[in-house]
Design a protein around this nucleic acid. Sequence first.
DNA 1: GCAGGAACCTTTTTT
DNA 2: AGGTTCCTGC
Length: 709
Amino acid sequence: MEDISHIIDPLNAVQREAVAAPAEHLLILAGAGSGKTRVLVHRIAWILETQQASPHNILAVTFTNKAASEMQTRINQLLQTTTLGLWVGTFHGICHRLLRMHWQEARLPSTFQILDSDDQQRVIKRILTTFALDDKIWTPKQVQQFINNCKEQGLRSQHIIAEGYDLWLKQMLSLYQTYEEYCQKNGLVDFAELLLRTYETLRDNTALRATYQTRFRHVLVDEFQDTNDIQYKLLRILVGQHSYLFAVGDDDQSIYGWRGAKIENIQNLSKDYPAIHMIRLEQNYRSTGTILSVANNLIANNKKRLGKNLWTDGEAGEPVYLYSAYSEIDEAQFIVGKIADWVKKWQEVAILYRTSAQSRVFEEALIQKNIPYRIFGGLRFYERAEIKDVLAYLRLLHHRQNDTAFERIINLPKRGIGDKTLENLRAIARQHQCALWEAVHHAINAQLLTKRAATPLLEFVTFIDKLSEQLLDCSLSEKVQQIIQQMGLIAHYQKDDPIDAQRRQENLDELLRATQQFETQNKEEFDIVSAFLAQAALEAGEGQGSKFDDCVQLMTLHSAKGLEFSLVFLCGLEEGLFPHQNSLDEGNLEEERRLCYVGITRARQTLYLSHSETRAQYGQRNNAEQSRFIREIPSELLQEIRLKSAYSNHSGVQPSITLQVGDNVSHPTYGNGVIIEQEGQGELTRFQVRFAKGATKWLLLAYTRLEKC
DNA sequence: GCAGGAACCTTTTTT
DNA sequence: AGGTTCCTGC
């Protein structure tokens, strides 16, 4: 046996127990910062180096591409050899791979295309118009959600029975069925379909199932608490009689219930695999004792838990700070002020918030102080309109029957082909049971269109055919380059929005670079265009290229999962915002609390919590109550930086009522102004202030921060 | 068919 | 407030 000390030695006793456990089903309940990924990676290395299995026998599943690539990198680092045959990937990536290999068994055309959620919505929109339903009630979004929900539960339209007179369900089912037929006919596979189709194929095909059950002797799953129904079913079918499941998860970090993740799957494991061995990783290596204590106290308020208490043998560290701001602008300025004092790397600092809309004020404050920052989330690279435009051309060149691509670019750049003409084309396509591309030829041959519509259409198809022929022997990147140049896309964006055009141009350059890179990395690929398009759909790419290597990180709590920072600001802790009103309405308070727990446990060294007494939302300024999550943290763990001024008698900060009519004042949110009227007494004194910016406001002294100037 | 103004709607996000 | 989609008049 080879020397395996390098795999075992860096681990603590419990981690070692998990990594070197005998071949059996294992559930690792790994608390935040307890070395979850490390255990997974070392487990794989241990299996390989103790020669229990070859790379070929191992399947490791993650939820995000980022997690998958990190795991692959760390495995390679640890083993110092290539691990050919080892499958590490996302659920979707792995299913895509299986379907490409077994398209016949899956009853798919070999050329099936992946529909991203944007494409999916377009298809649904199109179906909805043919149903002629009230579009106020039947929105594409709702239908999309219904279909995806069904698929995520493993249900086809024919499996659902609408009882009695549930007309809504009946209508949804008929839409779902039409959608299924449309996708099947056109060889389209949406994200949920990748999983469902793989599941069904393995379920219905004994030989294939046996092949993979024998092959994958070890199935390892990361973030198990995030699995939904179909993912769980898929895992169950992949793990055969002689295979072992290694599931790593943390019920306290389950924050994706709203998109179908089932915490119950963790409990189901013990039912479905009675012999499963449960190991708890509770020692935290990330945060200070105080931060952990805050996290533990908060999460203890949740009833639905398996129970777990994180501990550390490190220092208690600094207290956790709490700042009560007057407005979200005050909050941002305080936080950015603290960041400006930070002497280590910017990338060690994160501002976490509940909703993306909160990022703006921070952005402005950071720009003002000249601090580099990066906002995560938002539109991702391959979701950008200009990228999707070029890829639609590529799709159409490659596959003239692709209606989704056709519809996207038929009038882009503007060719004078509008909705009416397109509607006619759709009708013709339906009539002849053909693609829109062929419908154009029918229409022109049979003279079904006005000259005004026919001329640009004929021009369009001729041009595409010509371009296609011209690019036949070109490489992927040459094709993309020619599309960008010959279709006049840049000029179109220039006309559309001259300010945005520069950025779009840069993105297109980036796309070109990505295709060149893809070419060099996939030299032996037979159908490189399809491979590239699939990758673009499955890996939508980062939100924005990191313009700076070292910048402050701004992100929602959801995107912060799995990351850690020395200095963390968790802001907007207000009732209605965090916990969010919608979650409260839907009874999902516990998930919000877990989200808060995730946020707290991101911090290594210093954690600031903040809330604001007022907040501008939907164009209105409202008073905001401090979040219950703050109240659930024992006050001795918190150090308040500025006490809530309103009505607090223990604050020590008396609102000073030395202002009077005629005084020039400044306000952190509205700027400078002059007091023109006064009413009320004591804490309830109100001033009417006319601000230089034009607004005149009544302000309750207790809730605002007016300063004489 | 298209541009520009009115009405509408605002959680989280991956694949 | 801001962004998107919808509607109307040219």
